[in-house]
Amino acid sequence: MNELSLEEAQKIILQSQKILSEQKLKSPLEDTLSNIEHLGYIQIDTISAVERAHHHTLWNRNENYQSSHLDTLVENRQVFEYWSHAAAYLPMRDYKYTLIRKHAIGEGKQRHWYDKDEVLMSEVLKRIEQEGPLMAKDFESTKKKSAWASKPTKRALEYLFMQGDLMISSRKNFHKVYDLTERVLPSDIDTKTPSHEEYIRFLIISYLRANGIGQASEIAYLLKNTKTYVSKILKEMESDKELMIVQIKGTKYYSLPNAIDLLNQSFSKKRVKILSPFDNFLIQRKRMLELFDFDYKIECYLPEAKRKYGYFSLPVLWDGKLVARMDCKAERKTAIFHIKHLAFETDFSLSLEFKIAFQKEVELFMTFNACRKLELHQVTPNLIKKDLQDMAIFPSF
Score class of each variant (00 low, 15 high):
Thr226Pro: 14
Phe174Asn: 11
Ile12Ala: 00
Ala156Lys: 07
Ser396Glu: 13
Lys286Val: 14
Ser276Gly: 09
Ser48Leu: 03
Gly214Asp: 07
Asp165Gln: 15
Ala216Met: 11
Leu208Asn: 04
Lys273Asp: 06
Leu289Gly: 13
Arg332Gln: 11
Leu223Asn: 14
Asp31Val: 10
Ile36His: 03
Gln389Pro: 02
Met366Arg: 05
Gln163Ile: 02
Val124Met: 06
Lys308Gln: 05
Lys241Tyr: 15
Lys102Gly: 07
Arg93Asn: 14
Asp117Arg: 13
Leu383Ile: 13
Arg372Met: 05
Leu4Gly: 01
Leu317Met: 11
Gln66Pro: 04
Asp31His: 12
Ser313Met: 08
Phe294Val: 01
Trp148Glu: 03
Phe397Ser: 06
Asn211Arg: 12
Thr191Ser: 04
Ile13Asp: 07
Arg209Ala: 01
Leu291Asn: 12
Trp59Leu: 06
His56Pro: 15
His103Asp: 14
Leu134Asp: 06
Asp31Gln: 14
Phe365Ile: 07
Ile13Leu: 06
Ile245Thr: 15
Arg201Trp: 09
Ile339Gly: 02
Glu198His: 13
Glu107Cys: 04
Ser313Trp: 03
Ser170Asn: 13
His377Gln: 09
Arg332Pro: 06
His196Trp: 11
Gln130Phe: 02
Arg285Ala: 02
Leu275His: 00
Glu375Gly: 00
Asp94Glu: 12
Tyr65His: 15
Ile204Ala: 00
Phe368Asp: 09
Arg209Thr: 15
Glu236Cys: 06
Met167Trp: 01
Leu120Met: 09
Phe281Gly: 01
Arg93Cys: 11
Lys176Trp: 06
Glu198Val: 12
Glu242Tyr: 12
Lys144Trp: 11
Asn35Cys: 11
Phe397Arg: 03
Gly214Ser: 05
Asn382Ser: 14
Lys340Thr: 00
Ser146Ala: 05
Ser351Tyr: 05
Val246Tyr: 09
Ser146Lys: 07
Glu290Asn: 15
Tyr221Gly: 03
Tyr199Gly: 03
Lys126Leu: 14
Glu242Gly: 06
Ser67Leu: 07
Lys227Ser: 06
Met326Asp: 00
Thr181Gly: 01
Pro257Glu: 04
Ala9Phe: 10
Ala53Met: 08
Ala88Gln: 08
Arg325Ile: 00
Ile248Val: 15
Leu120Tyr: 08
Leu350Asn: 02
His85Phe: 10
Phe348Ala: 00
Val50His: 05
Val119Gly: 06
Glu238Gly: 11
Leu160Val: 09
Lys360Val: 09
Thr380Ala: 08
Gly164Leu: 11
Ala324Thr: 02
Lys360Pro: 02
Glu375Leu: 11
Asn64Phe: 12
Leu20Ala: 02
Tyr41Trp: 14
Gly40Tyr: 09
Trp59Asn: 10
Asp31Ile: 09
Tyr89Ile: 13
